[in-house]
Amino acid sequence: MQVAGEAVDLEGGDLWVFGYGSLMWNPGFAHTSSMAAMTYGYRRALCVRSYVHRGTEAAPGLVLGLDRGGSCRGMAFEVAASDRASVIAYLRERELVTHVYKERLLPLMLADGRRVSALGYVIDRAHVQYAGALKADEAALIVAHARGRSGENVDYVMNTLEHLRAMKIRDHWLEEVGRGVKRLLARTSHPAEA
């Protein structure tokens, strides 16, 4: 049995995968079941500088990462042993493009009370794209002005918040960022009279 923090082997039995961002509503891989789950010791954060999809190297945007500290509610997906290797290969291609994330086994508490270890992707704090622990107003300022190949950074954040609300997952810090972005955009579209 592997312990939390080790990379995941392609060989083995059934596998659980933890999603805390777009994987929650768009996993893109075969799974036999899914349910709400919580991991402890990590939190969802806009801590990854996006140089391509939601920003540029000159003006990076912010996307989600799983950073140390706190806890995070997300979704757990159970993957059959027969699909294990192909699902891990798919996730590595999707998540490890710039190696800003590290592949880890995370301890999860499933909604039904079971405790399992799940494959998850956590931020590499030593990576150049790690933005650090930003205050909500700092993150909102970046998000409000960044744009990349996949569009406006604000669209990414608002879409994430919409999906979290639909899944009945509260993320108070991310909600505060969203409110800050809305305030900034309102000021831009309705500048004060000079």
Score class of each variant (00 low, 15 high):
2 Q>S: 15
3 V>F: 14
3 V>G: 12
5 G>E: 08
8 V>L: 14
9 D>A: 15
10 L>D: 15
14 D>P: 13
16 W>K: 03
17 V>H: 01
18 F>H: 01
21 G>Y: 02
21 G>H: 03
23 L>I: 12
23 L>P: 00
31 H>R: 03
32 T>H: 14
34 S>H: 13
35 M>R: 14
37 A>R: 00
39 T>M: 10
40 Y>L: 11
41 G>K: 03
41 G>Q: 02
42 Y>R: 14
44 R>Q: 04
46 L>D: 03
46 L>T: 07
47 C>W: 00
47 C>N: 03
48 V>D: 00
49 R>T: 02
54 R>G: 03
55 G>N: 04
56 T>A: 13
56 T>C: 13
58 A>E: 12
59 A>K: 12
61 G>L: 08
62 L>C: 03
62 L>W: 00
64 L>W: 06
64 L>C: 07
66 L>H: 03
70 G>K: 13
71 S>T: 08
72 C>I: 06
73 R>Y: 12
76 A>L: 13
79 V>F: 10
84 R>L: 05
84 R>M: 04
84 R>W: 06
85 A>Y: 02
85 A>C: 08
87 V>G: 01
89 A>H: 10
91 L>V: 06
94 R>V: 06
96 L>T: 06
98 T>N: 09
101 Y>T: 05
102 K>Q: 15
106 L>K: 06
106 L>V: 11
110 L>V: 05
111 A>W: 00
114 R>S: 09
116 V>I: 13
119 L>S: 00
120 G>N: 01
124 D>N: 15
125 R>P: 03
126 A>V: 11
126 A>I: 02
127 H>W: 10
127 H>P: 02
129 Q>N: 09
133 A>G: 11
134 L>M: 13
136 A>Y: 12
137 D>H: 14
141 L>Q: 15
146 A>C: 11
147 R>C: 15
149 R>M: 14
155 D>Q: 09
158 M>S: 10
161 L>F: 02
161 L>T: 09
161 L>A: 08
162 E>P: 01
165 R>F: 08
165 R>P: 03
168 K>E: 08
169 I>H: 01
174 L>M: 06
178 G>D: 00
179 R>C: 06
180 G>R: 05
181 V>Q: 01
181 V>T: 04
182 K>W: 07
182 K>V: 07
185 L>M: 15
188 T>D: 14
190 H>P: 00
191 P>G: 13
191 P>V: 12
192 A>P: 00
192 A>E: 02
192 A>D: 11
194 A>R: 11
194 A>F: 04
